[in-house]
């Protein structure tokens, strides 16, 4: 693969697709549309194949038909439950009994909500509250000035941010002013986040440019 004709064909194909997508920056055109259609088709196909082989075949088919009885886990028959739910989902294709497909959906939503009730509560609420509550001047009263400022920012930011997202009270008076401070903190956070994203986008562009100029054209070492 690495050498010979196939290597050159693969390089040109990749470059053709990369440049085709880039051409959208100039304007929408046929080349872009072709690349877009190829991308959409291949990715949808890839997901289908990945799910088919990793779930349907490796987990269900192998688990139920291929694996010898002795090697199966105690609860191997649960695979049938999963398969049954999967079939119920496909009943949507039969309009008369289509409503049954809501059951597996309810199962997914319920299980996810159950899992997250505990984990979100523990990790995103309780642990984060505990971490926000800190002595402003440090545990030994010896925090350097930047750390004190940091602690104040975290405490005030969390407090006012929570006020902004409090929906049971109109944003008026002192409460409204606190919410306004909260939105300020949010906007500053968004700014920082935006900066990181510019970095991310540039990285992706650099990655592609590196491919074009170093792997494809071999102009750059």
């Amino acid at each position: 693969m690495e050498s010979g004709l196939m290597h050159h064909v693969a390089l040109w194909l990749a470059a053709f697709l990369t440049l085709g997508i880039f051409s959208f920056l100039y304007r929408d055109n046929t080349w872009y549309k072709v690349c877009e259609a190829i991308f959409v088709g291949i990715s949808a196909g890839y997901w289908f194949v990945a799910y088919f082989w990793d779930n349907l075949y490796t987990k269900f088919w192998v688990g139920v038909w291929v694996t010898p009885m002795a090697d199966r886990p105690d609860d191997w028959y649960v695979l049938y439950v999963g398969a049954a739910l999967g079939i119920l989902m496909l009943l949507r294709l039969v309009p008369k009994v289509g409503w049954i497909s809501r059951w597996p959906l309810a199962f997914i939503v319920g299980a996810t909500a159950g899992l997250y009730l505990v984990t979100y509560f523990a990790s995103n609420v309780m642990l984060q509250i505990e971490d926000t509550v800190r002595p402003i001047f440090g545990a030994e009263n010896d925090a350097p000035i930047y750390e004190i400022i940091g602690n104040i920012v975290v405490a005030v930011g969390t407090f006012t941010g929570l006020i902004y997202f409090f929906f049971s009270k109109e944003h008026r008076g002192a409460f409204g002013r606190a919410a306004k401070v909260g939105i300020f903190f949010l906007m500053i956070t968004f700014g920082a986040s935006f900066g990181y994203t510019v970095m991310s986008r540039m990285s992706l562009l650099i990655g592609r440019m590196d491919f074009l100029f170093s792997d494809w054209l071999k102009l750059i070492k």
Binding site: Q128, D131, V154, T189, A192, S193, Y196, T197, S200, S203
Partner: peptide
Amino acid sequence: NTAVQTTGMYPYLRS
């Protein structure tokens, strides 16, 4: 992490 989601991870670092 990709830079896009890095800011969202800092609270977990601090705690």
